[in-house]
Computed example of a mutant assay.
Amino acid sequence: MTAPDDAELARLQAEAAEAALKLAQAKAALAAAQAEAARSSTGDATSRPPAPAPTESAPTESAPTESAPTESAPTEPESEGPLGPADIAAITKGYTFEGTTLDLGALMNGEPLPSAQIRIPLGMLNRHGLVAGATGTGKTRTLQGLAEQLADKGVPVFAADMKGDLSGMATAGEPSDKLLARTRALGQDWKPEASVVEFFALGGVGKGVPVRATVSGFGPLLLSKVLGLNETQESSLGLVFHYADANGLALVDLSDLRAVLTYLTSDDGKAELKNLGGLSAATAGVILRELITFADGGADVFFGEPEFDVNDFLRTAPDGRGIISLLEVPGVADKPAP
């Protein structure tokens, strides 16, 4: 190892001297800061005024301050019905469908809820349904609304008008303030409109187009049910229909059927009666008596020609709406008399 030369030694000595100077300056600055801090602490303690001695003062009653009345924000009135928000949301979702629907009205929860509409899909109208309720709760109006909406969507409708309540669909309704207020509360935009309606009457008893059927078209099975025949008498009546059909005898009305039975129970028809197999004269006589009673009760007006065609009730109007066919029943509801 070689000794450093004079120049290198001088440089190292200069750097050491400079470092010693900086160290001395730092120590001096630290001492000055400590002294200043000590003086500040002593000055605050001597300049702070002494705390006043506690004095006992008489209690004073503060005057009540009157606060300014605050106006609360209006809140939406809560429904008084038994359903909560979750129930209402679930019901609304359950009656919300895609596609064509029929409106039944708004959900009732004490008051109608326009946002909760009850609807059923048009495609479900081929199923059985029941509208039940006490008198005056809207059963007839519900059926009328269903019929009008079906017809408006091009679906023909056939209905038996038991009391004449459905005939009003043929004319447009009369608007009133009460009616419009009610429909608005239900969330409906009601407009008066008449439906295309045709009236029919059984056997012509009423103002509608007469509806009749032939005895042959009515058939032995249904006629036996109407006459209240037992199984033996029902099968015997079927043999009578078979005899008439085999011999080309048209059974148009009840008089035709009575004529066949009268012939079979006569002396001239005894041979024919034996060929029918199992039809006794006594059974034929019972059927004949029931037919006479049935006709005397007014049922004979239903049988005759021209015979109705079911397609007459399944038609649409030129504008595409379904035709509502109403069958008048009040005139024959109690016939034959019990």
Rank of each mutant, 00 (worst) to 15 (best):
E111H: 10
G154V: 07
S167I: 14
M108K: 06
K163M: 12
P121L: 07
D161V: 09
Q233D: 13
V157N: 02
P114R: 04
S236C: 09
Q144I: 15
S167Q: 12
A246N: 13
G133V: 09
V205H: 03
V240S: 06
D253H: 00
T183V: 04
R127K: 13
T142P: 05
V157H: 05
E174A: 12
T183L: 08
A160D: 06
F158Y: 08
A194G: 01
V196A: 10
G238C: 07
G145W: 03
V209D: 10
L122V: 13
A194P: 00
F158N: 00
L113Y: 00
R184A: 12
V155A: 07
G133M: 06
N126D: 11
G110F: 02
L150H: 00
P156Y: 07
M169K: 01
A160N: 08
K225A: 10
G219E: 03
A170L: 01
A134N: 12
G168M: 08
V196F: 02
N247K: 13
L130W: 08
G133A: 07
I120P: 01
D177N: 11
E231T: 14
S255A: 11
D253C: 04
A201C: 09
G204Q: 01
D245N: 13
W190C: 03
M108C: 02
R184K: 14
P121H: 06
G217Q: 08
T232Y: 10
T232E: 14
G138Q: 04
V211W: 10
R141C: 11
P192N: 10
V211R: 15
A181P: 01
G219C: 05
K178F: 09
E193C: 11
L122N: 06
F200Q: 09
V226H: 13
S195N: 13
V155H: 09
L229C: 10
A172M: 02
R184P: 00
D177L: 13
G138V: 06
L150D: 00
L113A: 05
